[in-house]
Design a binder for these strands. Structure first.
Lengths: 152, 152
DNA sequence: TATTGTTATACTCTATAACTATA
DNA sequence: TATAGTTATAGAGTATAACAATA
């Protein structure tokens, strides 16, 4: 595979943000699409996956989960119900506020999250394995920049 | 905003593909999610958008579009019908094969595609504008690597 | 007989509105 | 009165199955 680290098209004086935004958006959307397609065979749906990933950080209320996922409360009720039925999360009453519920990830949930993560990562790991070391370094740096960028 | 170009965590001897794959996958999925969220207010749906983008390269049959988009034929019929109703594509019989139809993008379709693209890119352009020049160069290189990576 | 495209139907995921209970 | 969560219902978007037209 080719090395893109030294490719042309970037004058030393600067990269225009609007041009870069188009390039990066196209690359990110295409890659995410491939990642989604190659992730077939998962036990859990994409929505369930990201909720489990949030829960790994600790128990959360349903409202907090809905806000983090940018979905409405009824949708989160549905996702949490599905995860509960499969035994991947547990629910309990909030100690101080009887209206709220707390949701945690179970050991089985941790396990399925790890499985799904490695399945979803396998395709990409094969692809980056054949890149040059320089390209891998570029991608690693870019990953950190993109994390900060999208974290808000 | 901070500069990530020189951050720690990467021994000089190499970057493990499986670790990089997890980092990159997380960054790409999170960024694509933000791009999707920030793209609200579009005239056309995401599916219609990518079909228009494919058609910019030239006319296509419905079957070809369905395969490129990884959807089934009935779904593509629906998308193309919606685009036709809005005047963004035209259809005609295939010259050599009466079973097939050809779909082109119209001038109105080109226009709405450009509008949607700049709307969808505006959020990202603002973010990359405040990065260091080194970070922009890293992202630009990474974009090209990811393009090759996902192109197959 | 195989292939292209359409129609019919069902399923999944999401949203809004109405409801219950707790604060 | 306001908030957390659930239930009821409707609207996208997708899929499979059955069909019509053409190769």
């Amino acid at each position: 595979m080719t090395t893109s680290t030294g490719d042309a098209g970037h004058p030393a004086d600067g990269i225009r943000p609007d041009i870069l935004a188009i390039e990066l958006r196209t690359a990110v959307m295409r890659t995410s699409r491939r990642l989604r397609i190659e992730a077939t065979g998962d036990v859990i749906t994409p929505g369930q996956y990201t909720v489990l990933a949030h829960l790994r950080a600790g128990s959360q209320t349903l409202r907090e989960l809905a806000e983090r996922e940018h979905v409405q409360a009824p949708s989160m009720t549905r996702i949490v119900n599905a995860l509960t039925d499969q035994g991947f999360v547990s629910r309990s009453a909030h100690p101080d506020d009887g209206r709220q519920i707390l949701v945690w990830i179970t050991p089985a949930g941790e396990e399925v999250l790890n499985e799904a993560r490695s399945q979803r990562t396998a395709w990409l790991a094969q692809r980056v394995a054949v890149l040059s070391e320089g390209d891998r370094l570029t991608l690693s740096r870019a990953a950190h920049i993109m994390q900060e960028l999208s974290a808000k």
